[in-house]
């Protein structure tokens, strides 16, 4: 059952990665690696959160770092820059639920200005969701970019055909 949960998480992340990647017109040869990276990164985050007690921010950072490392490895195979592979792969990890709760609590806060208890509840909900959503997006970008600083020479010559 656990294996099924992990595999289905990876499967849906791969489809999400391919679909969101398609909006940004990636080269066709990059699609399978985008799917692979999206699946690995999301699966890793899921396992860390569900079985290792990690919270979403730390797990996202590690998942993004793995995607970044993978993109530096696969980038050379398809002669594509790291960002072409890792940006679509990161998109399924964007904290959409927190972003939605942010908007929802803002509306409810504005609607309950005359009710002190509800007002405070929705304000707290708004700030906690905003902080989580913003931190996760920032850590996703930083985590995936870190390998670029660890292997600068390889990262800047992925599209070079001459060895």
């Amino acid at each position: 059952m656990i294996a099924m949960d992990i595999l289905s998480d990876a499967f849906f992340a791969a489809i999400a990665g391919i679909g969101f990647g398609a909006i940004s017109d990636p080269p066709l040869r990059a699609f399978r690696y985008i799917a692979l990276l999206a699946a690995t990164g999301h699966m890793c985050r899921y396992c860390l959160m569900a079985y290792a007690g990690f919270e979403i921010a730390g797990a996202s950072l590690i998942g993004a770092f793995i995607i970044g490392l993978g993109s530096i490895w696969f980038g050379k195979k398809v002669y594509s820059p790291m960002t072409v592979l890792y940006i679509p792969a990161l998109l399924p990890m964007i904290p959409g639920k927190f972003a939605y709760n942010m908007v929802f609590s803002l509306i409810m806060f504005l609607q309950s200005i005359d009710h002190p208890v509800e007002k405070v509840k929705y304000m707290e909900m708004f700030f906690s969701n905003t902080i989580i959503a913003a931190t996760v997006v920032f850590l996703l970008a930083v985590g995936a970019t870190l390998p670029m600083f660890l292997f600068p020479k390889r990262a800047t010559s992925l599209t070079r055909h001459k060895q």
Binding site: I87, L90, A141, T145
Partner: peptide, 22 residues
């Protein structure tokens, strides 16, 4: 409701923005 609008999230400029700053 939460996921229906997520295809609009401008992920590329968001991540490029952080890369540029870093």
């Amino acid at each position: 409701l939460a996921t229906s609008v997520l295809f609009l999230v401008p992920g590329v400029p968001l991540i490029n923005g952080v890369i540029d700053i870093v």
